[in-house]
Design a protein around this nucleic acid. Structure first.
Lengths: 138, 138
DNA sequence: TATTGTTATACTCTATAACTATA
DNA sequence: TATAGTTATAGAGTATAACAATA
């Protein structure tokens, strides 16, 4: 694939800026980015551990630890499964739902500020392209 | 700032995909992303600790540790300063320069693969917009 | 006295390997 | 025996506070 020289490294830099800003927003809600992402995945629906493991790109021991820490803060809760007692489903507590909604909303509202200096036209084009880039990526 | 609903969270997801791919490339060169970024900053010029601290968005103890680990692998080297003996400058070793160049090149060549599925027109527009977004951001 | 960088400490994240309980 | 999830262990990253050396 031929790309402008520097594009690859621009992407790394851009992603770092986004992650840094995201981490700030999470910290304002007393969350790490990993905890916030976990919370956003379970705040509106229960999810199994394997599914979460895959969605978060974490090996299972990593997820176990993340869930431990997030559960200790009272944001999520492990639930057993009747049919297959090896399985375990994660649900969010009311507090978790509330915090998750708040982080999600603030990300939606303030993360785009990073691109404030783009012209309205460019900003709109950028939004469309980001959406298109993700569309076949998930 | 008004943005499409979901744009902020798209950005988080996009940045995660980029960082994940970047980490893969770094790992192929036996580096962490933090070490690779440090190396890319010093591979072509010496840099002071404060400058690096600011560029990497790290507090000073964090940078000290990162430099320790990278130095232990023989990739960078601390140098004293004659004028002000409190200061310390970081330079890359020949091996560091070589590894840094290799990672940089592979990021330039393969990170854009993430957007292979975009049409050539969209891809070009995306490259331009990413460049524009960073232009006033640094 | 102020500044640069390091050390000490603590917590989070993440990986691999070994283990437990269940199927 | 195979699978789901946990525990054990280790290393990396990052933050705050205390410290040493130098200016």
């Amino acid at each position: 694939m031929t790309a402008s020289p520097g594009f690859g490294n621009h992407l790394v830099y851009l992603s770092t800026l986004i992650q840094r800003r995201f981490a700030q927003i999470c910290a304002e809600h007393d969350l790490t980015t990993a905890q916030a992402q976990l919370l956003c995945l379970v705040k509106d629906q229960p999810r199994g551990m394997s599914e979460l493991s895959q969605l978060l790109g974490l090996a299972k021991p990593g997820l176990s630890g993340l869930v431990d820490r997030t559960e200790r803060r009272g944001l999520v809760q492990r639930t057993g499964c009747e049919q297959d007692r090896r399985l375990c489903t994660l649900i969010s507590t009311p507090k978790g739902k509330q915090v998750g909604d708040a982080v999600y909303a603030e990300v939606a509202e303030h993360l785009p500020d990073l691109f404030e200096h783009l012209s309205p036209t460019d900003r709109h084009a950028f939004e469309q392209l980001v959406a298109a880039a993700l569309r076949e990526e998930r």
